[in-house]
Design a binder for these strands. Sequence first.
DNA 1: AGCCGTGATGTCAGTTACAGACATCACCCT
DNA 2: AGGGTGATGTCTGTAACTGACATCACGGCT
Lengths: 189, 189
Amino acid sequence: MGRWQSDSRGRLQEAALALYAARGFDQTTAAEIAARAGVTERTFFRHFADKREVLFGGSDLLQEQIVTGVVQAPGEWGAFDAVAAGLDAAAAMLGELRRDLSRRRQAVIAANPELREREMAKLADYATAVAVALHQRGVGEPQASLAALAGMTVLRVALDLWASGSDERDLPTVMRESLAELRAVTAGD
Amino acid sequence: MGRWQSDSRGRLQEAALALYAARGFDQTTAAEIAARAGVTERTFFRHFADKREVLFGGSDLLQEQIVTGVVQAPGEWGAFDAVAAGLDAAAAMLGELRRDLSRRRQAVIAANPELREREMAKLADYATAVAVALHQRGVGEPQASLAALAGMTVLRVALDLWASGSDERDLPTVMRESLAELRAVTAGD
DNA sequence: AGCCGTGATGTCAGTTACAGACATCACCCT
DNA sequence: AGGGTGATGTCTGTAACTGACATCACGGCT
């Protein structure tokens, strides 16, 4: 908690989400977001590298969760089972969020190509980190990258399903179900 | 073949690749690329939506190839087998390119986060198109999205392997091998 | 041959996303 | 009470795009 007016960063995130949802991403300027949060444009860019990043606040934490899940999986488990453990950890963390907020956020992201681009980039980053963790478990290439990327595919699809509202079950359940579906699909149908 | 000095677009692509490789992506301005190609900055942005897009020239064609491959796969094949047919088509097309050029291009992309972001976005677009094609074959959700995204994972890994040079076999072979590896990894190790 | 439509390009001006340099100022520690 | 620190404001600059308008080579039509 800073010594200034509390939590500029958090207020910027809320302001951005509200404005992106109301006017759309490109119709919103960084200066407008800053004004709504009661700070300067310069302060916005000190907290977030660019206009998109403001929507991806907790992504570092999430990556940590996933990697930790992979690392802590029993050593005798196969590569993809370890990734599945990482996905469980991710689901546990994301499932804590208020579902309406997640829905709102996902809707904003889905509505804009640049934001979708950033989301894919985040998933690719997670996959890279997961692949590194798999290497430390003795998994080679290209198996590590394939397992990691396949896992991120499951994460994306499950999150879409959960946040888009067609599926009312909780996130960990949807995640496990999606993973089973991927296994079935690649097995040969 | 335009009626003007031939192929501004092509010259812009070459100029961009050369400059990005030499100075790096952010150290290169659109004006510099345009100057090297003998046109104006404005012309650059008429041919390419943004600075990154100039490196992804044939992506529309590639998407067409992939989708066509999926659509033309025998109707009784499963979802992932149809995707595999699309990957064969992609490998056939990409394999035609001069390998040193592909290597050069991949190296430039790998060196810059924004370009990697765009590459992931392209793959996501292909996946969306493939999922639509799968729907028309009667595949439901989330199976279609999972199969399509898993396929794009294989494409990415195989392309990296091929272009990064550690694997000297031809692209269709590397692609099929990677697909087999994914099947093995998700099957349970 | 001469006129005319068309599409690719040049020119110009404007908006906005970002980034560096420097000043400020509330808070904490001593 | 005074100095250090980190978050913020201010000012200024670069470069990625974008819209509006002029131009001009070419190909077709008469």
